[in-house]
């Protein structure tokens, strides 16, 4: 489904601060995979996700979705294939908008026009499935929710338009253990029930060993491990 071939990303090229963030990485992700990505800080995990999102264009190599080359495709155009959730709960939602408006915005990909869309039944159903009562607070502003609630809403928003791939960048890192576990269970359900392919970055070794059917370890911009197994060695 997603194919990275010899992807190289160099920051500050030609200057004193030149840094090779990704060094000819090749990776193929199959439909339905739940890939856990680990690695120390600066290993290139987030850079790899940003390449897939279209936020960073690689210096060389080929990035493909299905059989289409996506090099140079802008992030908002890739959004119809890809959902994303980041570490900061505020980064995935619109705090000044109500929960309902957040869902309406997320349920449609692409440019908006002068119509009045309504929140989809699927969106409310997803919200109800969280079991935290957000479906009864549709008019509450997202900014008034707790960190865990915001992250849950962000997860729902990221899959409401049924993307094929969900990218998670340490999405449980800023949550307390209870909220973190709830979000991880939700992540697992998204993969199994809705068949959405997931690529998840985490620093939490417990989560990395517990979730996902494939583990990829990055070190200094290269893939040092790529396997399906029960245990991942600490980085």
């Amino acid at each position: 489904m997603v194919k990275l071939k010899d992807i190289k990303v160099v920051f500050n090229k030609g200057t004193e601060n030149e840094k090779v963030a990704l060094d000819k990485i090749s990776l193929t992700i199959k439909e339905g995979d739940f890939v856990t990505i680990i690695g120390s800080n600066g290993a290139g995990k987030s850079t790899m996700l940003k390449v897939i999102l279209g936020e960073i264009f690689p210096n060389s190599g080929i990035y493909m979705i299905d059989d289409s080359v996506m090099n140079g495709t802008n992030s908002y155009k890739l959004a119809k294939f890809i959902g994303r959730v980041y570490q900061n709960p505020n980064s995935g939602v619109f705090p000044n908008l109500s929960i309902k408006e957040n869902l309406i915005l997320a349920s449609k990909k692409g440019m908006r026009y002068l119509g009045f869309s309504k929140v989809s039944d699927f969106g409310v159903e997803l919200l109800a499935n969280l079991g935290i009562g957000l479906e009864k607070r549709l008019n509450t502003k997202a900014g008034h929710l707790s960190g865990g609630q915001k992250q849950s809403l962000a997860m729902v928003m990221s899959i409401i338009s049924r993307p094929r791939l969900l990218l998670l960048d340490e999405h449980t890192a800023s949550l307390d253990p209870q909220s973190s576990e709830k979000i991880m269970e939700l992540t697992k359900r998204i993969n199994i029930e809705y068949g959405i392919t997931i690529m998840m970055i985490t620093h939490n070794m417990e989560i990395a060993s517990k979730y996902g059917n494939r583990f990829v370890k990055l070190s200094e911009g290269r893939i040092s491990e790529d396997s399906i197994r029960d245990h991942v060695s600490a980085s």
Partner: peptide, 25 residues
């Protein structure tokens, strides 16, 4: 209140996230 108006309000609320939902900021 329209979809495009809502997107403009969303832009002011979280500039980077609008790109995630397929709208050019």
């Amino acid at each position: 209140r329209t979809d495009i108006g809502m997107a403009i309000r969303a832009f002011g609320s979280n500039k980077n996230a609008v790109q995630s939902f397929g709208i050019s900021k």
